[in-house]
Design a protein around this nucleic acid. Structure first.
Lengths: 242, 242, 242, 242
DNA sequence: GATGAATGAGGGTTCATTCAT
DNA sequence: GATGAATGAACCCTCATTCAT
């Protein structure tokens, strides 16, 4: 199938070893220069193997990219659960998960960007598989949120939306690293983000005019703000659906 | 300089016309297939011009990409302010800005992704220029936030962080469109996001254990959660710096 | 379709000119060295064009081979009819056709061998097309034979078999040129061949034992020739079926 | 010398066994796909040995081809004499030889074609050696012819020419198998061919105009048909054929 | 100003051959 | 003797770029 990468070499340990070797080189180079710009020759050189060898473990240049991206996403799936081991308190688990996510991204900023940039270069099936892996790691976060909600620590929020917000926030550390790096550590960055996401931003006073941020109001208001808009009372408690 | 794109053609209106023609084609193709995979010949064909003609308005293939990305970012800078025209109320302006940002991204999802994927293919100087444009559009949001804070509608939040959170949330509509599209309209998506970002997530009960999400606590706790951790009271009011 | 060779260049005269140029080089090189051994670069060099140019008139290396083989077979179809122009007498036409076939092969020995050697390198459809062309040139011979038969100059022979015999005989000039070249001219070769094919080989005396060459007799005789065999009278007049 | 194939293995029986194994695979694959297209790896796989092993019995990929072609030609030299064993009558021996040639070719059509297609891929010396083997098998036929002539069964024909005609006719069974296979058995094919070659084709009446097939006459006639030609009255209502 | 034929450097990929085990 | 992982030269083909018309 177009999904699997088949190696011409049989010995599993060898396949394992060589793939690690090749993928390490590939991730570095693709991350730094981009996938299309990097030649197989360069990958081979950096991996200290011959060009021909790569093609014994991989069918295509695209295969290398695929395996590289899988490896990156798998590293998330390996590391986040580790950070939760031994933790029982839901809130604590939640915090640990988010911080772990942030940390693992911080450790592989280039690799994370690589996933964003080059997933599109893969065929549909493989793209789907990567999505599945992303959903899987999102689940690590959303499970924690649900626990917090179940235990009454969080309001009845829209779990999926909150999850994506957190995930995107973590990814943003990579995507916008030029903005934050050097000014904050990843830990500080996550702290502040959680602070913001978990605490109310709007003041009591602000609540009165809050309705105006809702699109249903805006549809009316757009272009000519009606005085009525200001009178609309804030919606209470969202009714999240799943 | 490596920054400017110089055309061999003198007549300004012609340059304008041809560039629009070429860039439209380029953005579509780059967006759909990727920059490296798209050939100049394909761009020429789709723009109904000859290959040679492109090279009269552009020096490089990279030039085409640069102009394309600039055009996308400029379109944000054109459209968001438009949505704010005539609005005075800070909260209303804030909502309108975020919704406008969401809308403009929704209208050009592929183009937005293009910026994410291919900015790296440009030289450093041009990359900086694109960043500047992004900061400029972020400013459109952060200004609104600051107004809300100034008027006491928002708490004294970390403005930059909130801005990025909102921006990333809007971008996520493009980046994760496969997750949300078809299930929500962009307006609903933004509504829910704002809802989540502006309202408290943590319950009164949850606040007691909130300290455990903070990295400073976690650093201690990691691996062996101390009972003490649970007693730590939540930090009050973040001290945002700019 | 897999059959057609499409050029990226539009101007027909140019296509014509370039193809001739390329094919001349290709036929020479493929003929001398073999198709697989010859690189496109070599063809380009010998044709005084760049590698890239070849690929504007041809999609594949295989396309070059196909066009080359077609060109060879077409040259037969062009030249043989020419030799018949103005001739009316059937026997004369027959002789002229065979001599022309011999001559055209003699002029392009290498090219003729090329067809034999490399037809298999083509896809099935193209192979069929070449066969059709061969049949077409065989027809030029078989038509002459039929005329001779019709006019009572030839016995009622198995036309197809005789045709193939003649054709193979002509091809043999190329296939076994190492045997005949230098010892005979093509004209002498054809003379002798026709001599042999048209005149009786078996003597009156030989006829009595002729039956023994027939497989139906041999089947019985094989290993232990029966005396009966000798009594069998020679078959008269073959009954060709089609 | 470039002629010999030297094996690194000492044990003769092993060399024998392995070579048979390898050559069987090679002849099949080269015959089906062509020599250049077939990889050593494919040959190894089909022969159920490792790539490395092949190189212990052979120095080159070309060696494999050489041995394969030799094996094919040797099989002719083995089988034809067998068919003559016990036969004494010259005409009978002639018939048996030709039929045997036909049969052995029919049994290895692909292999026969292989010789035609790939002999050129060998070096000059080896090519000469193959030619010698071909001449050797031609001798098997020509000897029979000479016997027939000696005994007055055949006219004093051009033996070599007749030999080649017969040989080519047999080869044609392979070379043009797409034309005859399924319509004739090899035995029928040979029968008809001999019929044609041994019996006069030209009628008594035809003989009068026969001179016109001779090249010496044609040289004069060419382009401007001799007056004689024009006088020949065309017989109308000739025997219709198919 | 516009065209598109021509160029050729460069990249992906294959495969004969070697050699350590 | 046998294996098959490793090598790297070499080939097909693409495509950005030029330039004569």
């Amino acid at each position: 199938m177009a999904l699997e990468v088949v190696s011409k070499v049989e010995v599993p340990e060898l396949v394992e070893k060589r793939q690690t070797q090749i993928l390490k080189a590939a991730i570095e180079l693709y991350g730094r220069q981009g996938y299309h710009v990097t030649t197989i020759r360069e990958v081979a050189q950096r991996a200290n193997v011959s060009v021909g060898l790569i093609y014994q473990y991989v069918h295509d240049k695209e295969d290398v990219l695929f395996l590289a991206l899988v490896e990156v996403l798998d590293s998330y799936l390996r590391e986040i659960p580790q950070a939760l081991e031994g933790l029982a308190d839901p809130m604590e688990r939640f915090g640990a998960a988010v911080h772990a996510y942030g940390r693992v991204i911080d450790e592989r900023i280039e690799a994370t960007l690589l996933v964003y940039r080059e997933t599109k270069s893969l065929g549909r099936q493989r793209r789907e598989l990567l999505k599945a892996k992303e959903i899987e790691s999102n689940k690590l976060i959303s499970d924690c949120i649900e626990q917090c909600v179940a235990q009454g620590l969080f309001d009845e929020v829209d779990v999926e939306m909150l999850t994506y917000m957190i995930v995107m926030f973590c990814h943003a550390w990579a995507l916008k690293s030029w903005r934050f790096r050097g000014r904050l550590t990843i830990a500080q960055y996550v702290d502040r983000g959680l602070q913001l996401m978990l605490h109310p931003v709007v003041t009591a006073r602000g609540k009165r005019s809050l309705a105006s941020v809702d699109s249903r109001r805006l549809a009316v208001a757009e272009g000519k703000p009606s005085p009525a808009a200001r009178k609309t009372t804030a919606r209470k408690g969202a009714k999240p659906r799943h």
